[in-house]
């Protein structure tokens, strides 16, 4: 049900752009207006989200500690998993964001006869996620060859390494293969693991299908249903220099690709894709484990009803005296 809903949603998006461009000649809408609107939504949406998150304070210092604390000088503390300083926190966050440290810990629980619980190492999710995210990043960066003239040197560098194997013509990018493989794995994982299927929502399948479609249309354009690259670059540079033009004769595949990308970035601030900025603000990861060493301030520290020692002694004074416990008032 959730799968179908998302599948059809992506299908409708694709059909909409085909009809829009092929039949209704809405190149300017799909080539200029929608991309601009999507970028604006993305930027404003993300800013709004981050401000909204930042508006809520962090009342308590609650890192999830995953290693030895810094205590006695002769006990070796774990500076990354139980960071004690800002530097340590930066290290911990870097490992988390760049290498998905926590996913690397993943295990699979199995219940065997005995009964015996076994926790096997399970790194596939980590690997799939890492390959997907890094491939995606490299592919996005590679696209700067379309946005800038002359082509920035880091793009040339990425292109060279991405096409290292020099297979085929145009040269096959390794990341194109990897991202499709990783996306396929992430999708199959969702539908074959019963637990995962049970927890998956339309909002999990939708971005997955969207990104798969983006990757597939991109690959089709590069290797099979080729489009006029010169015109594409003309359009892209026009967009980025706020001087939009619609060159003639760009293939439909490009408009499908562009519209899917527009939908993805406009959808971003309203979806789980927010995990990208959100992870940086997660209080269980981005705080040092030094709460006994350095006082953390809660801006709304609320006064509460308390039971004072005086009230306590008033109630129990006689019993305390009889038991020989010292009291304040005789």
């Amino acid at each position: 049900m959730n799968i179908l809903f998302s599948f059809f949603a992506v299908l409708i998006i694709i059909l909409a752009v085909i009809i829009g461009v092929e039949t209704a000649q809405l190149e300017f809408l799909f080539g200029v207006i929608i991309p601009y609107a999507a970028i604006a939504t993305f930027i404003l949406g993300i800013i709004y989200r981050i401000l909204k998150w930042a508006k809520s304070p962090v009342p308590f210092r609650i890192p999830t500690v995953t290693g030895q604390e810094k205590s006695l000088s002769w006990i070796k503390s774990n500076k990354l998993d139980s960071p004690n300083s800002t530097l340590g926190v930066i290290g911990r966050m870097a490992l988390e964001v760049l290498l998905f440290r926590s996913l690397f810990r993943n295990t699979k629980t199995q219940l065997k006869d005995g009964p015996a619980l076994v926790y096997g190492s399970s790194k596939y999710l980590w690997l799939g996620a890492l390959v997907f995210h890094w491939s995606f990043l490299i592919i996005v960066l590679r696209h700067f060859r379309y946005f800038a003239e002359p082509i920035p040197s880091f793009v040339i560098f990425l292109q060279n390494y991405d096409g290292l194997f020099q297979i085929g013509l145009p040269i096959l990018y390794v990341t194109d293969v990897l991202i499709l493989a990783a996306l396929t794995f992430l999708f199959l994982r969702r539908i074959t693991d019963p637990k995962l299927k049970y927890i998956s929502l339309s909002s999990d399948y939708f971005p997955l299908f969207l990104i798969i479609s983006i990757a597939v249309t991109g690959i089709l354009m590069r290797y099979f249903a080729k489009v006029d690259i010169v015109s594409v670059k003309e359009l892209a540079i026009g967009l980025f220099s706020f001087n939009p033009v619609i060159p003639n004769g760009i293939g439909i595949m490009f408009y499908i690709h562009l519209f899917l990308v527009s939908v993805l970035i406009a959808y971003f601030p309203f979806s789980k894709l927010l995990h990208m900025p959100g992870v940086f603000l997660s209080p269980t990861r981005n705080l040092a484990n030094n709460s006994r060493m350095k006082r953390h301030i809660n801006p709304w520290n609320k006064p509460v009803r308390i039971h004072t020692y005086e009230e306590y002694e008033d109630e129990f004074r006689d019993k305390m005296k009889a038991a020989g416990i010292p009291v304040e008032k005789e």
């Binding site: 989200r49 998150w53 926590s102 996913l103 993943n106 295990t107 699979k108 629980t109 999710l125 996620a129 693991d193 637990k195 995962l196 927890i199 998956s200 929502l201 999990d204 789980k272 927010l274 995990h275 959100g278 992870v279 997660s282």
Partner: peptide
């Protein structure tokens, strides 16, 4: 806001 339901926590 940010759970992606990756299922790492599930078991």
């Amino acid at each position: 806001d940010i759970c992606v339901r990756c299922g790492a926590c599930s078991d």
